[in-house]
Design a protein around this nucleic acid. Structure first.
Lengths: 203, 203
DNA sequence: TCTCAAACATACTATTCGGTATGTTTGTGA
DNA sequence: TCACAAACATACCGAATAGTATGTTTGAGA
């Protein structure tokens, strides 16, 4: 997780961060609807007054959670790992392997927080939809840039559509995060194996 | 949707079916948690007494929903379309094209009911997990059988692992159902295009 | 040091939730 | 036709829910 130290921010900002981090944890494991504000404040030192001082309602808290916790986390764990890369195909594979197997924040049974939120709340809330779209776009863009860089380096064929490749890869990632909840981590192997084959075939 | 006519069943069975069909509709569009029993009975002629006569609790209703509505629907719309096929690769492609573009029950913004349920409830309930696993297994098996049949017919290479192919295809389907909620139906094209390429490459 | 708004704390509320208690109706086999 | 269980109907309950009303504390600038 990518987190500022509480000492480096004002007390109010720290309170806000405590709420968002606890909300992230609970929502990741139980879902957005199933996570109540009462539970969030009961498992922190924060009171209801503080919660509703920082956020007008639960939905706005969700938007802040996406923009202020999830998005920076994806920038740190996803986008950054594909920037300044001299071997795009290898780095994309390594990124996915890291996300699926090494990342300490994610568990197989709970999937990926972004994928979960997209599934649960994107259809029902415009503001959450918009915030999630921004996160996904950022990831798609990172893969796309990486592929295009690979093309510039002559490592990837010029006739492949970098944007489509990005969609295919993210699609596979979302899907395997979903299926992993039923089949367990073994199916991650199938995805990684197929991803490797797919990337090799772009040469 | 695959539904028996109410006239062909007892009144009690019809009541049960009315509950499950309405529950399916509401849960598909709003999620399991967000769909209350009160809403289900308020939008039907069914009373709370009838609901809890047929189901001990909400979770058991969910299990019945999966086993008695979703599973038969998938048998009708998924498994059946891959059985007795003489051109497996073409039929798998046609199946996905149908599910994504022609099926009247599904909408892009709401994704796929099975994928949605897997994401929302599989981690939190053993009984729902088990029921959903049964549905996914059934679909995986159908694809796998189809691929193996293609191998027997000499249309698909013998060295491909049919089980892994099934996982890859279902993974892509789950993923695109998720991403479709953010990107809209346009990204379905990318999946279908990639699926076609993937299937051709199995020859 | 004083002021005052930002930041929080506490108590409360209206509504909704899953579920139960206790009835009444309905169909069906003897 | 009558007995009786299956099938339903109604009223209710305690807990949980998002959100509000109304305070008190705190810290930073004048």
């Amino acid at each position: 997780m990518f987190v500022k130290s509480y000492r480096s921010m004002s007390k109010a900002a720290a309170t806000r961060q405590i709420i968002l981090l606890k909300a992230f944890d609970l929502i990741y494991r139980n879902g957005f609807q199933a996570t109540s504000i009462d539970t969030i404040i009961a498992t922190t030192q924060v009171t209801k007054g503080a919660f509703f001082y920082h956020f007008r309602n639960k939905e706005e808290m969700g938007v802040a959670l996406i923009n202020e916790v999830i998005k920076p986390t994806m920038e740190e764990n996803f986008v950054r790992r594909l920037s300044n890369s001299n071997h795009p195909a290898d780095d994309i594979y390594a990124l996915m392997k890291y996300l699926l197997q090494a990342s300490p924040d994610f568990q197989v049974q709970y999937g990926c927080p972004v994928v979960n939120l997209v599934n649960e709340v994107a259809p029902g809330s415009d503001s959450l939809h918009k915030a999630l779209y921004s996160v996904l776009s950022q990831c798609l863009q990172a893969v796309r840039n990486s592929v295009q860089h690979g093309q510039a380096l002559g490592q990837i064929r010029k006739d492949v559509n970098a944007g489509e490749v990005a969609e295919v890869i993210m699609m596979g990632y979302s899907g395997i995060r979903n299926m992993g909840k039923l089949l367990g981590a073994v199916c991650y192997q199938t995805y990684l194996k197929e991803l490797k084959r797919y990337l090799q075939q772009l040469v």
